[in-house]
């Protein structure tokens, strides 16, 4: 699967995702798009697009399960989250090159992490319930000891609310399946992770209060 970028506005057409909302199913090759197809953002013609280099690069990293030293307690996926978070820390300081390098490390750890054995929604639900019933409560209690750690409390408060929404949505999804998503959109808040199902994202995120443009529309899984 390849990606093509519009040379005028920077819009990226991702073959893996397609544009389902415009009737272009996921997996549609760029060559298969009609000749009169234009950039959905700026209207540039198909010939104004160019192939994104490295989009074919395979990340076939070996499983990085064993990390020596004190980091044994961090799994590859946790290290991936640490790295993608540090990439954000660089972005905030407008350090684009350093952010890109942390993203590369995050991708390495994501690709090298061991897949979950026999994943299903009920196992996900069990972990969500454990967080709601024990994890958040005890963690929040620790933040209230002197001196109060309001930064940690902030992250816990957001994540707890997002986890409650996850529980509501997983319950619905188990009853309704993909019918729940028909004729509507799925949006994720890129700041706190709140998931919203609806035609348009909310004007402000109900959990962390960022404006709607901070929401990402989920169109399909890029493999």
């Amino acid at each position: 699967m390849k990606k093509y970028v519009c040379k005028v506005c920077g819009y990226v057409y991702d073959e893996a995702k397609g544009i389902p909302s415009a009737g272009i199913p996921a997996g549609t090759k760029f060559e298969q798009l009609p000749e009169n197809w234009v950039c959905p953002v700026c209207g540039a013609s198909k010939s104004m697009f160019k192939l994104v280099e490295d989009s074919e690069k395979k990340t076939s990293y070996k499983t990085a399960e064993s990390v020596a030293g004190d980091m044994k307690e961090l799994t590859a996926l946790e290290m991936s989250a640490v790295c993608s978070n540090l990439a954000r820390g660089c972005e905030k300081q407008y350090k684009a090159e350093e952010a890109g390098m942390f993203s590369e490390l995050a991708n390495y750890f994501k690709a090298a992490s061991k897949p979950y054995e026999n994943p299903d929604m009920s196992k996900l639900m069990a972990l969500i319930d454990r967080d709601i019933e024990e994890g958040f409560g005890s963690a929040k209690e620790e933040t209230l000891s002197q001196p109060k750690d309001r930064g940690a409390l902030r992250a816990l408060t957001w994540s707890e609310k997002v986890t409650l929404i996850l529980k509501s949505l997983v319950e619905r999804y188990e009853k309704e399946g993909d019918a729940m998503l028909e004729n509507t959109g799925v949006y994720v808040c890129t700041i706190c992770g709140f998931i919203y199902i609806g035609a348009q994202p909310p004007a402000i995120c109900p959990v962390c209060k960022v404006p709607s443009w901070k929401f990402e529309k989920i169109e399909g899984r890029a493999l």
């Binding site: 989250a81 978070n85 992250a155 816990l156 706190c192 992770g193």
Partner: peptide, 9 residues
């Protein structure tokens, strides 16, 4: 996104 935010704190 939640994991990143928790890692940050």
């Amino acid at each position: 996104i939640q994991a990143e935010d928790i890692a940050r704190e």
